[in-house]
Amino acid sequence: MIATTTRQADSLTPGFISEADELVSHYPVSKRSASLPLLHLWQNHFGFIDDSGVEWIAARLDLTPVNILELVTFYPWFRREQAGKTIIRVCRTLACALAGGYEVKEKFCQAVGLDPHCEHHGYGHAPPTTADGNFSVEFVECLASCGSAPVALINDDLVENISPGDVQSIVDSYK
């Protein structure tokens, strides 16, 4: 497991715990079903999921930590390291690639100051992130918006029909 100096679970608030309780209540048949919702809640709150998060969620759902850890390492969305405040996820797959998605991704890397060729290794690692912690850029697979390619998901916003010349002003709007 990746070592962290502070334990996220030590700073839980009553508000967070009641949100977790509400999510568990959506699964009256099996609370194990709340694994993904609690992981989302945790990552949205803390930015990533540390060992204490894995352990807390497992305990809350009467599971062993490995039941949760194996989800964090499987699903590409979850990470065990802090990512940038703004995460730029550029679609890599065919329709976007046909429309220039690779060039757009390179421009995003340049605009935030990342090496366009730095690799993202997945398995819980954060995507490549700027030294100031403001931006991460990564390729993701099809975002289901092929009619307005190329697209990127920037935090919760879908940005469509991106031309390479637009990239700098898009990045500036997230500064």
Partner: peptide, 25 residues
Amino acid sequence: FVHQGAGAYICGEETSLIESLEGKR
């Protein structure tokens, strides 16, 4: 209830989706 996935294409396969909804890989 709404249940959110976590970035895996395989979950579009119906039995995989069910496993995902049960909180498993």
